[in-house]
């Protein structure tokens, strides 16, 4: 009886933490005003929120049933893949020149996802034409 009460309180705390973290991530996604700033909120805070919800599910299975650690699989998968997808989305923002781009490299011309801006006139013209076409359509 007492163990069940403690388990229920632990589940409730984990659910509250997960819900608050998820909400904070979504608010950050909605309210920030720069592409790369927006990237910070959901990829870190949202992953943490889902991790807390999965922890609540795990405690629930231990409290009211035999218990299982299966949710650890989802948690580990999300924690491993969230930085990778965040890196890909940051690369997309850099590639489309939607943010403040990093400075030119000192020695070679390899820059982020393409050659350094300004170093390769054809490429820059191509990207400008593509962006012009995007805004026109």
């Amino acid at each position: 009886m007492t163990l069940e009460l403690i388990g229920t309180i632990a589940i409730a705390i984990c659910l509250f933490i997960g819900a608050i973290f998820t909400l904070v991530g979504a608010i950050g996604l909605l309210k920030f005003n720069d592409s790369l700033t927006r990237l910070h909120a959901p990829t870190k805070v949202g992953t943490m929120g889902v991790g807390a919800l999965l922890l609540a599910s795990m405690i629930h299975s231990y409290t009211f049933a035999d218990g299982s650690m299966h949710e650890l699989l989802i948690m580990a998968f999300l924690f491993v893949t969230a930085p990778i997808s965040a890196n890909f989305m940051a690369k997309v923002s850099l590639h489309r020149r939607n943010c403040e781009t990093p400075p030119d490299p000192p020695r070679d011309r390899t820059w982020s996802t393409l050659d350094a801006p300004g170093g390769h006139e054809d490429l820059v013209d191509l990207i400008a034409a593509e962006q012009h076409r995007d805004t026109a359509s």
Binding site: P42, T43, G46, L53, R96
Partner: peptide, 30 residues
């Protein structure tokens, strides 16, 4: 931008996982 839309879709997937986990807790199902 395109990056924002991809980010929003990724966030929606993560939130959908959270909703499904909550459904599993509510129904006590594995």
């Amino acid at each position: 931008n395109t990056g924002d839309r991809i980010l929003a879709l990724d966030t929606m997937v993560v939130n959908a996982i959270g909703l499904i986990v909550l459904l599993g807790i509510a129904q006590g199902s594995r």
